[in-house]
């Protein structure tokens, strides 16, 4: 009995003396992790041609130069397309954590475009998490070409077209992200009566991270059949994102020349597999206009 008591007391003292660092670290454990918003699903606001789920961060202005050279299969005379170019300049601004506004000007049909992009759902990890991110993209484009037949009655509204998209994306792992983009394109003016004013399409794209700073991207746009009389192809693009400090360089080959939604979804002419390929790049540069509270003086 006495031995047993000694043993118990001894064990008790050893136990209490043993409160070491591990116990102290256990004190800091906060149990299951709180839901945490998943970031960096893609490197920039563009997958390749199309919009990605990413917005410019709150208070950040993004300047994008998108450039497509001419067709690769034009031969040495055109230096494999390098003699020609189609360009779009764009500015995008993160108004808050969810809303972004953008403006752009493309050389293709001398088009101005404006858009808003709103994050409806944000993917999160941890307990009670959201499996996907969902954004709404809504844009308008205005071509400013001279009227083909100035003598007839022309309507300003016939220059307008609209694109509305839902961007549904998931970052499956650190390396793999995929995005599905159902789209509605409305054109105020179409070439013939057989052309639809409202066109439906869907985009599928993704990225695979090769290293921390480079990713391989692919994107395909499927335009539902029998909606247009134009001889158009579905848009396919393969790209490589290279990140260097404040810039991201997106290099790509694609069968679409223009860089804004209506045009590359419904007006792509090139046949990807016959070499009608455009080499191109997007360069993004970010400017922080609004600093977080603790940093603003």
């Amino acid at each position: 009995m006495k031995k047993a008591m000694c043993l118990i007391a001894g064990m008790l003292s050893i136990l209490t003396l043993h409160t070491g660092a591990q116990d102290l670290l256990d004190l800091l454990d906060e149990g299951p992790a709180k839901p945490e918003v998943v970031t960096a699903t893609f490197k920039t606001t563009r997958l390749v041609n199309g919009q990605s789920i990413e917005n410019p961060a709150n208070g950040v202005l993004v300047f994008i130069i998108s450039h497509r050279f001419g067709r690769l299969n034009q031969g040495a005379y055109e230096l494999f397309g390098l003699d020609q170019s189609t360009i779009r300049f764009g500015l995008e601004y993160g108004v808050n954590d969810r809303l972004a506004l953008g403006l752009g000007r493309s050389s293709y049909q001398k088009t101005f475009d404006g858009f808003l992009k709103y994050r409806i759902l944000r993917q999160s990890s941890g307990k009670g998490s959201m499996p996907v991110s969902l954004s709404l993209f809504s844009s308008m484009a205005i071509n400013s070409l001279k009227w083909q037949v100035p003598e007839r009655k022309n309507f300003q509204t016939s220059r307008y077209s609209y694109v509305h998209q839902l961007l549904l994306a998931r970052k499956f792992s650190n390396r793999l992200s995929l995005q599905l983009t159902p789209s509605l394109i409305h054109k105020n003016l179409v070439p013939t009566e057989d052309d639809k004013n409202n066109l439906f399409a869907a985009g599928l794209g993704g990225r695979f991270k090769l290293t921390n700073r480079t990713t391989f991207n692919a994107e395909y746009w499927y335009l539902l059949p029998d909606q247009t009389t134009l001889d158009v192809k579905n848009c396919l693009a393969l790209g490589l994102d290279v990140e260097t400090g404040g810039h991201v360089f997106q290099l790509m080959v694609t069968n679409a020349q223009p860089q804004f939604e209506r045009a590359f979804i419904t007006e792509t002419q090139g046949n990807f597999f016959k070499g009608d390929l455009y080499f191109g790049f997007n360069i993004t540069r970010v400017f922080t206009l609004k600093k977080p509270k603790e940093f603003s003086e």
Binding site: A21, L24, L25, T39, R213, E243, G245, G246, V286, P292
Partner: peptide
């Protein structure tokens, strides 16, 4: 005994891109 546990994602930077690069790269 003195212990610390620091959640890396809780570091706030002046520029959002810096924060992304810090965590990602």
């Amino acid at each position: 005994e003195f212990v610390f546990k620091v959640l890396m994602k809780s570091f706030a930077f002046e520029k959002a891109l810096m924060q992304e690069h810090f965590n990602e790269n």
